[in-house]
């Protein structure tokens, strides 16, 4: 059965809640522990970016299916400043703040599908999908 839930992302406590809900979603979809850990960690990175750089936003967690394969998809949205140079932001080690600069690129490696839509003044939307 298809399901989805949308959670607010305003504070670091919200990041913890989103991680928790993603873990439950992956568990419910029958993910193995290592795959659960990967999607939860990827979600943690993007959730924190949404709070820190995006000025807050939301995460929508859903169960998805493709060719008989089940998976978990998380869509993060904010109305923050957006990203001018996505290619640069995706570079390993690049940060405009004080991070390790591995959140976006790491989350991409930890997901099966990764999409980022962003433009200056238009906010940012990142979608992560991992299949079971």
């Amino acid at each position: 059965m298809a399901w989805s839930e949308t959670l607010p992302l305003r504070s670091s406590e919200d990041v913890v809640t989103v991680r928790q809900r993603v873990r439950m979603a992956a568990d419910r979809e029958g993910f193995r522990l290592v795959d659960q850990t990967k999607i939860v960690t990827a979600a943690s990175e993007i959730a924190r970016n949404t709070v820190i750089y995006g000025g807050g936003g939301s995460a929508t967690i859903e169960g998805v299916e493709k060719n008989g394969r089940r998976g978990v998809r998380i869509t993060f949205e904010d109305n923050g400043p957006g990203i001018a140079d996505i290619e640069l932001a995706m570079k390993d080690g690049w940060t405009s703040g004080a991070g390790l600069g591995l959140g976006l690129s790491g989350a991409k490696r930890l997901s099966n599908e990764f999409e980022i839509v962003s433009a200056p003044g238009k906010g940012t939307r990142v979608t992560l999908t991992r299949w079971r």
Binding site: V34, T37, K38, T41, E45, D92, L100, L102, S105, G106, R109, L110
Partner: peptide, 9 residues
């Protein structure tokens, strides 16, 4: 361990 490696840390 597997996840840290993929993160690139």
């Amino acid at each position: 361990a597997a996840t840290i490696v993929h993160l690139g840390v």
